[in-house]
Amino acid sequence: MSTHSNSKIEWPLWEIFVRSKQGLDHKHVGSLHAADAAMAIENARDVYTRRMEGISIWAVESKNIHASNPDEAGSLYDPANDKAYRHPTFYDLPDEVKYM
């Protein structure tokens, strides 16, 4: 197949999210190439869930993901640095409350 490459057009890139078990969130596990959404999910099944990692797969075409700009990290995140009052750390938790 590879010798005949009039198909120089690459398959689009997809981001893959896998839910490892019921009740948990889908987590980003990586990306892969596929011709369409159906193939992306099939490929994800083979690439990312072959060792029982998941029970549900999401595929999102990478071009549809919009990312924050690293150059703006300063203005985006630094102002949160000195605002300790935003963290709920000023309460005493009763011992009965677990998993907080």
Partner: peptide, 12 residues
Amino acid sequence: GPALEQDIAISN
């Protein structure tokens, strides 16, 4: 395989 992903699929 013709693509990495399909290589893994057919090997599986």
